[in-house]
Nucleic acid binder design. Sequence first.
RNA 1: GGGAGAAUGUCCCGAGUGGCAAAGGGGGGGGACUGUAAAUCCCCUGCUUUACGGCUUCGUAGGUUCGAGUCCUACUUCUCCCA
Length: 413
Amino acid sequence: MSTYKSDFLNILSSRGYIHQCSDAAGLDALAAKGDVTAYIGFDCTAPSLHVGSLVQIMLLHWLQQTGNKPIVLMGGGTTRVGDPSGRDESRKILSIEDIENNKQGIQAVFAKFLAFGSGKTDATMVDNAEWLTKLNYIEMLRDIGKHFSVNRMLAMDSVKLRLEREHELSFIEFNYMILQAYDFTELSRRYGCNLQMGGSDQWGNIVNGIDLGRRMGTPQLYALTTPLITLASGAKMGKTASGAVWLNADMRSPYEYWQFWRNTEDADVGRFLRLFTTLPLPEVARLEALQGSEINEAKKVLANAATALLHGEAAAAEAAETARKTFEEGASAGGLPTVTVDLGSGIGVLAAMVQAGLASSNGEARRAIQGGGIRINDDVVKDDKLLLTSALAKDGSIKLSHGKKKHVLLKQG
RNA sequence: GGGAGAAUGUCCCGAGUGGCAAAGGGGGGGGACUGUAAAUCCCCUGCUUUACGGCUUCGUAGGUUCGAGUCCUACUUCUCCCA
C-alpha cells in the first residue's frame, strides 16, 4: 500500500474511500499544503439524501478535517436536466418547485458533518442553478460546446451503454456531462476549486471537467472517485423493506437509523466502520476481528458511531438503549415508535396493525397472523378477531410486534 | 413523414390456446435454524371482518361475444428501422 505525504490521501486510502484518482501524486502535494478545495455535487432528486450519499459526505468531512476546503454543490440546475450515468432509463423530469423543495430538504444534513463559514477551511454551499440558468445557448455553444468532441462523448460509458442496449438517450440527458464539466470550471474560477470527488459512476463526468478546464485555461484540476458500496451479499446498499434509508430524521427516525446499521451483515462490519465512522483504524481492526456472535458488539459500535455522526450522541445513546431494552430484555422500551389508538372502546388487531403501519391492509395483517408473525406483548396472536383494549396495556401501552424486529407501542389516544 | 414492434398483477422481470385473480422468477414479508448476521429450508405476497362468495386488475376509450389480458376499432406512450 502506497503512502502519501498528505493526511487527506492517507486517511482516504487506508479507510477504503479511493477507487480512482486522476493524479494521486499531484493531488497529494496540494493536500499536504492544505491547498485543496474540493467539491461534490448532489442532485436534488429527493427530499432527503440517503445512506448511498454518505460515502461522499464522509469524503468532504475528512477533507475538512485534514485542513482543506469543502464545497457542497447543490444541483439545483443540473437536476433540471437529469444525469444519465448508470441508468437504463431516462430520469423523470422534475418540476422546478420539486427541485427547490428537495434542495431545502437536503441542505440541512451537511451541517452535521461539516463546519460552514467563511474561513479558509470552512465549508461553502453553492447551487449550480446560479450560473447554469443564466447560460445563453449560442454563447455556450461557442465558448464551451466547441471544446467537446461528440466522437468522444459517444464513447463515454454513460452514453455508450445506452446506445448499446438500444435504450433511448434524449438530447437533454446527453448534455448533462457538459453542464457538469462546466460546473467544475466555474467552481475553479469562482472558488479556486481544484478537485471534484464523487462515486465511481461519476468518473467520466469528472474527467470531462478536467479536460474542459485545461482547454479553458483553469489551473490543473483533479478527480477522485469512491468505489460503489455494495453489501457483501451483492445487493445495493441502503435499501430496506420500507424503502431507502433516508438521512433526514423526519423521514427515518434515529432509532430506525441505528437499527439499519445494527443489522449490517458480518462481512461488511469492518468496511463500514472504516467508511461510515471516524473510529481509529486500530480499533476498527480489533472489532473486525471478533468472531461469531461477538461481532454483534462491533455492530453496536458501528450503529452508535454512525448514528452519533448524523443525529448526535444523545440520539444515538437513546436509540441504543431502546434497542437494548427491546431486544436484550424483551421489554417495552419507551423509545419505540408510538401510535395512539382508541383502547377505551377497543380496536381489532387487524385495524391496529394497519394504523400502526405494520401492515398495509387487513388482508395482509390477517396473513401475518396466520403465519404466526404477530405478537402482542410478546405473546403470539392466533385469533385475527382479537380485540385490543386498555386491559391489555402494561405501563399504559400495548407492544405490538410484527416479526422479530418491528415493534410499535399502542397508546390510548 | 414512412415502416416494424411493445405496453400484464400500482416494486421489477416475465409467461399467457376466448373461461384468468392470471404460470414462473426476482424483490419483499413471516416462520424454522442462529447471533437483531449470512447461507439454507418452509409458508405468504390484489382488495374485501373469516368465504367452493363479492369486488377490482393486464396502456386508454369503445366494440364483437354467454364470456376478452387474449379478437376488432380508435387513441396514448415507448422502442427500433427508413426519411
